[in-house]
Simulated assay, not measured.
Amino acid sequence: MTIAGIFVILPLCLALAAFSDLFTMTIPNRISAILLGTFVIVAPLAGLGMSQIGLHMAAAALVFAVCFFLFAANVMGGGDAKLLTASAVWFGLNASLVTFLLYVALFGGLLTIVVLFLRRQENTILASGIPFPRVLLTAEKIPYGVAIALGGFAAFPSSPLMQAAFAQLS
C-alpha cells in the first residue's frame, strides 16, 4: 500500500458505511476494522512518528470511551460507535478531531431533522411510488453513519494524516 491509500481508504470506507446504514440501518464491522488496520499501515508511510501515532490512538480511545457510554445508555448504536472510533484514529488528538466531531454533530442534527420530516410524510412518500429506502421510514433510529461520513469528508482535508501525505507529495 502506498501513500495514495491515505487519499482513498477513509473516504471509501465512510461512503460504504453511509450507504449501508442508509439502506439497511447497519454498518458492517469490517469497515471499522479496515479503517483501524489501514491506519496502522499508512501512518508510518505518511511519516508519522510513534508519538504521533500514539496520539491518534489516544483520540480513538477517548472517542471509544464516550461512545461506549452513549451505547450503554442506548443513545448510540454499536455500528455508529465503532465507525466513529475507527474514524477518529485518522484525525488524531488535536484540533482536527474537534473539527471532525463538530461536523458530525452538525450533519447529524440536519440528518435527524430531515429523517423525522420524511417519517411524518411516510404515507405520501409510499403512495407516490418514488423509490425510497423503506427502512428509513419504518426504523426507529437515525442512520448516523451518514452524518459520520459527511463529517469525515468535510474534515479530512485538514487532518494531520492528509497534511502529511500532501507534504510527501510536494
Rank of each mutant, 00 (worst) to 15 (best):
I130M: 15
A18L: 01
T124F: 14
C13M: 15
M1W: 14
G151R: 03
A105S: 00
T138F: 06
A17M: 04
P143A: 00
M57K: 03
L36C: 15
F19I: 06
I34C: 12
A86Q: 09
M50Q: 15
H56K: 02
F153T: 04
L36T: 11
L16F: 15
L16Q: 11
G78F: 11
L84C: 04
G54R: 08
M162L: 06
T2K: 11
L36N: 12
I27G: 05
G152P: 02
G78N: 13
L55M: 15
S128D: 05
P160V: 00
L16Y: 12
L137F: 08
A60K: 11
L106M: 09
I31R: 10
T138L: 07
A105Q: 01
E122W: 06
S87Y: 09
V104L: 03
A167Q: 09
S51T: 09
F107L: 01
A139N: 08
I6F: 05
L83S: 01
Q52E: 11
M25S: 13
I31S: 10
V8I: 08
G92T: 10
I130G: 11
L45K: 05
I3L: 15
G77V: 00
P11C: 00
H56D: 05
P131Y: 01
W90S: 04
T26S: 10
T2G: 14
C67E: 04
